[in-house]
Write a protein that binds this DNA or RNA. Structure first.
Length: 636
RNA sequence: GCCGGCGUAGCUCAGUGGUAGAGCAGCUGAUUCGUAAUCAGCGGGUCGGAGGUUCAACUCCUCUCGCCGGCUCCA
């Protein structure tokens, strides 16, 4: 038979040759690197024999599929070790995940961090023993009997869920057998470097009514160096954790006395937020938006009309009675903007109306899900609602997308994931409106030239949407922007505009956010930049530091001059050594440190140093101001 | 909300039933100094909160609040 490789080369081999033999025959290095293979597009074990003419490909750890196989086998290695140490353990599921793997296990007792070390040692033993990993397929009934005998209740449940008639595959390595679709590595010795990272609770099948299992997380790599690199990355992520930087840089705090999930913005954090807000407002005004403001609460009747009391109840704070009328704190801004729309008759000539508000909303979130600035109970949305005619929809989408990218670029985000979510089964609104809106979204996405994914039926019941996820410096995606049609609220509130024909028409309503939540966006920025905000965002842009008391007057004068020129400058005139001042300013991640000693006073200059430790030499104070103004200036 | 872990000075953390500690930060003083920590002295805690066990509780038990890691959902 003939096998064809991706480079179109062919090779004649006997029927039944395994991929492993095939690889070994081609190149021993290839065989050593391969973790799985692909036969006619299907990912399979290397031990799979090939029986007919096929396209064959070898997958190394460097390929996404290869990585999955590798991590999947790592999960099995973990399971085998756990079963060796805890024979009573019942295995649930153990899939590969991004950057690692986990296994959910029902154990007689809670694991401790010391157990992880023991399990890891056992894993090393099993890997060193290099047990061959063998696949076996058995009829459903036999598989059921096998796992019943092993006491693997969860596996039994899984098999029971498999369609009758389908063969069940198992993998055996040494004494250990696991129900698994595969594919897997040829032997346990292939797993080079691994580490168990954490233990956490997880419900069987993710359902909180089910039993809580123990989930062990781990990661693995072909060699120790790659594992080390990954662990170093995790360390770096920890160092950049926004909660840690928030405290170290004195930006914000969350306090028990205030309440969980409620943020206090300290002066420096508030300064960064102010800069973000100013930029946001300015850009909106330049793009034909108008700003609106709305109150923090409204009568319950409003939320009833909007449907929030019905569909969003579990996320809303309880109503409060005032003079016999119930009020509720807002979880969203839209009903207010709608009421502004309704305050008078709107003509097609008025449209589109683009209204934006930095609206602070409050949502009840279960205590266990709160997380720093990323998941809170009170947050400010950079909300906007666009009311337009059906004819204007395409143009508005195009503009909203263009606007989003512009803003993300300004904040240093160059990569995005784009998602289009279409009509779900249960939906409100006219089908033709859905189609028109979805077409407009799709057209807008196509025009960007960027790839996007379609989530069929993933839209909200009230309209299709585009979600924009930005990627931070670690490549982690964060959903921030959204462009979302709403066919529900205009209907509920009876919105209309008078058309050219003098008749009443429904306007299209689009919800649009760029950053999502200011709190969360700030947290993302903080981690993205590791606390070293670019000059235009830095809460303090320059510290002017004296060397001795003789320069105090001059330093204060320079700082005042910079401030007058619109620069956020502070003078550090403490009676401390210059080394200390530089250290502190550097740790505070202030972009520029301007040192002034007798020489600088005499020359009317400052000696510049960056937070990265670069010495920029002496520069005239006025020239420095001009330079800063240039660097912070608005992009066109 | 659920499972597990944690909660000691502003921060990071020692302290396993018998008089609460360290480093950093803070304050006071000295020092007037050229690119990441000058020196000395001093103050600072109802050990998250409430209740219980005990002659005695930071330490053991119960409840509670908060934080951390997950589970479900999401900005």
């Amino acid at each position: 038979m003939v096998v064809t490789f991706p480079d179109r080369s062919e090779r004649r081999v006997p029927r039944g040759t395994t991929l492993l033999d095939l690889a070994a025959g081609l190149d021993p290095a290839l065989a050593a690197q391969a973790v799985a293979g692909k036969v006619s597009g299907r990912v399979v074990d290397l031990k799979t024999p090939v029986w007919e003419d096929s396209r064959v490909e070898f997958l190394s750890f460097a390929t996404p599929e290869g990585e999955e196989v590798y991590r999947h086998s790592s999960a099995h290695l973990l399971a085998q070790a756990v079963k060796a140490l805890f024979p009573e353990a019942k295995l649930a599921v153990g899939p590969p995940i991004e950057h690692g793997f986990y296994y959910d296990i029902d154990l007689p007792r809670t694991l401790t961090p010391e157990d992880l070390a023991r399990i890891e040692a056992k894993m090393a033993e099993i890997a060193a023993a290099d047990y061959p990993i063998e696949r076996a397929e058995l009829p459903r009934e036999e598989a059921l009997a096998l796992f019943r005998r092993l006491g693997e209740d969860y596996k039994v449940e899984i098999i029971e869920g498999v369609a009758a008639g389908d063969a069940i595959s198992c993998y055996r390595q040494g004494e250990f057998v696991d129900l698994c679709r595969g594919p897997h590595l040829p032997s346990t010795g292939k797993i080079g470097a691994f580490k168990l990272l954490s233990i956490a609770g997880a419900y069987w099948r993710g359902d909180e009514r089910n039993r809580m299992l123990q989930r062990i997380y781990g990661t693995s790599f072909p060699d120790a160096a790659a594992l080390e690199a990954h662990l170093a990355r995790l360390e770096e992520m920890k160092r950049r954790d926004h909660r840690r930087l928030g405290r170290e840089l004195d930006l914000f705090s969350v306090q028990e006395e205030i309440g969980a999930g409620l943020i206090l913005w300290h002066p420096k954090g508030a300064m960064v937020r102010k800069v973000i807000e100013d930029y946001w407002r300015e850009e909106h005004l330049r793009r034909g938006y108008e700003l609106v403001y709305s109150p923090h609460l409204a009568r319950v009747d409003l939320w009833r009309t909007s449907g929030h009391t019905e569909f969003f109840r579990e996320n809303m704070f309880a109503p409060m009675g005032v003079e016999g009328v119930d009020y509720q704190i807002k979880p969203m801004n839209c009903p207010f903007h709608i009421q502004i729309y309704r305050s008078k008759i709107r003509s097609y000539r008025d449209l589109p109306l683009r209204w934006a508000e930095l609206g602070t909303v409050y949502r009840f979130e279960r205590s266990g899900v709160l997380h720093g600035l990323m998941r809170v109970r009170g947050f400010t949305q950079d909300d906007a609602h666009i009311f337009c005619t059906p004819d204007q929809v395409e143009e508005e989408i195009r503009r909203a997308l263009e606007f989003s990218f512009r803003v993300y670029r300004r904040f240093g985000f160059a990569e995005y994931d784009l998602y289009l979510s279409t009509r779900p089964e249960k939906a409100v609104g006219r089908l033709e409106d859905w189609e028109r809106a979805t077409r407009a979204l799709e057209k807008g996405l196509k025009e960007t030239g960027l790839p996007y994914r379609v989530d069929e039926g993933g839209g909200a019941f009230y309209g299709p949407k585009i979600d924009l996820k930005i990627k931070d410096c670690f490549g982690r995606p964060w959903q921030c922007g959204t462009i979302q049609f709403d066919f529900n609220l205009p209907e509920r509130f009876g919105l209309s505009f008078v058309g050219e024909d003098g008749g009443r028409h429904y306007p299209f309503m689009i919800h649009r956010a760029l950053m999502g939540s200011l709190e969360r966006y700030f947290g993302i920025l903080l981690e993205h930049y590791g606390g070293a905000f670019p000059l235009w965002l830095a809460p303090v842009q320059v510290v002017v530091s004296t060397i001795t008391d003789r320069q105090v007057g001059y330093a204060e004068q320079v700082a005042a001059r910079l401030r007058a020129g619109g620069i956020r400058a502070q003078a550090d005139v403490r009676n401390e050594k210059i080394g200390l001042k530089i250290r502190e300013a550097t740790l505070a991640k202030v972009p520029y440190i301007a040192v002034v000693g007798d020489r600088e006073v005499a020359q009317g200059s400052v000696a510049l140093r960056t937070r990265e430790g670069k010495d920029l030499g002496a520069i005239a104070a006025e020239a420095f101001l001009a330079q800063l103004q240039g660097e912070t200036g608005r992009e066109e």
